[in-house]
Write a protein that binds this DNA or RNA. Structure first.
Lengths: 211, 211
DNA sequence: CAATAAGTGTATCGATCGCTACAGTAGATT
DNA sequence: AATCTACTGTAGCGATCGATACACTTATTG
């Protein structure tokens, strides 16, 4: 992807992706602004000039960390949401995945996209705007999946999938805060399971044993 | 409540509660750490020494602002949750109230208890801990109300009200983030209405016209 | 081999952070 | 009126913020 050809100067002495992961850990736990360059550098085990040479500035480092975070932790979950043909199973699977991911760290962190830049000063608004765009992408994924469910006849005609997507998205965001407040994986899974009752039943029960 | 007796020195030249409200506005919009003393002072129209004389330090000012926020914006909603005898109507009412409160400001802010100290550095952890305690109080209120519903026979015996309280609390927290992301009051009310489907139906339909 | 170019560590930049010393002001007490 | 005491504005404290200047090192290139 990136041209490997060794250019002239001294090559860097650290693994770019490895230190990015270290930075991700700090950003995830602290959030964008409270994560100081000093703390990041200590975790990355490199000095400020190396950070700026490799990543540009703090905001760009953060956005790369977020991107890495999404790829590593969420891509599979979003894909499974698409691949599972039964919309209810798909959603239940996604929320079960979410319960796992959100409590996967040693320290309670929640979702980096949801909480990574919740409190920012005036001059870092654009960082939160970027995350907000990602949050809206998430909602859009829910909506697209639900609309497919409608097309597949899994919902009755008049179902308000827009509001349902918004509600599931709201639930998902709330789970981030629960995770950050230290709610256990087990409880978060129970919450996720209850959240599935938000999804209305199928229009016509397709083959039951009785009734 | 506070001893009115004018002590000896020069009396303060500002209204303590008025400037606290101004500070609340800044804290609500920005969060704890991004709200600088400079910005707070500008909004409060007083100078740093006056702030520290009247409120102690930034953390104490914040906690007073949070306390004021709860009293002004949420006390009534929590009281209505208790006063309404029908548990389902009570919850629906609370979430409708929440949708109003969360979108009541000019700028999208969300709930100050939920998002006011989401990102804090190492030495301000105690501020977030204090808010976390308030968040847990909220969940406890949900739980107590639901348990009363069980005692009142509004839920069937085996209903897992703990998980239900947790789920409603999660929904409530998620609504904060939606509000902060600029979701309209109308949409938030629709979300709140859908959220009510989380609550299982009454065990036996108590007097219907048919069926 | 020189010449060039890029990464690295040290040491620090100006700006801002929360907070306060200090002198001056103004109301209460005597 | 004299004194005491608390509030106010200015000005600046030490600490930390994100970001860099600079000298040094280490690789490629000619």
């Amino acid at each position: 992807m990136i041209p490997q050809h060794q250019s002239k100067g001294k090559p860097r002495t650290f693994d770019r992706e490895a230190v990015l992961k270290k930075a991700l850990g700090v950003f995830w736990k602290r959030g964008y602004e409270p994560a100081s360059i000093a703390e990041l550098c200590e975790a990355m085990e490199i000095n400020p000039p190396s950070v700026y040479a490799a990543f540009g500035n703090k905001a760009q480092l953060f956005m790369e960390a977020v991107n890495h975070y999404e790829n590593v932790y969420w891509n599979d979950a979003w894909e499974r949401l698409e691949d599972e043909p039964d919309v209810r199973k798909a959603m239940a699977g996604f929320f079960r995945d979410a319960a796992v991911i959100l409590t996967s760290q040693d320290a309670p962190c929640g979702c980096m996209v949801v909480l990574g830049a919740a409190n920012v000063s005036k001059d870092s608004q654009d960082v939160n705007d970027a995350l907000k765009a990602l949050r809206e992408e998430g909602k859009e994924c829910f909506l697209v999946r639900l609309k497919r469910g409608v097309a597949d006849g899994e919902f009755s005609e008049g179902t308000d999938v827009d509001t349902l997507a918004s509600t599931l998205n709201t639930m998902f965001h709330g789970m981030s805060i629960q995770a950050r407040d230290g709610v256990s994986h087990e409880e978060l899974e129970r919450v996720a399971a209850v959240a599935m009752t938000l999804i209305p039943p199928a229009p016509v029960p397709p083959k039951r044993h009785s009734a």
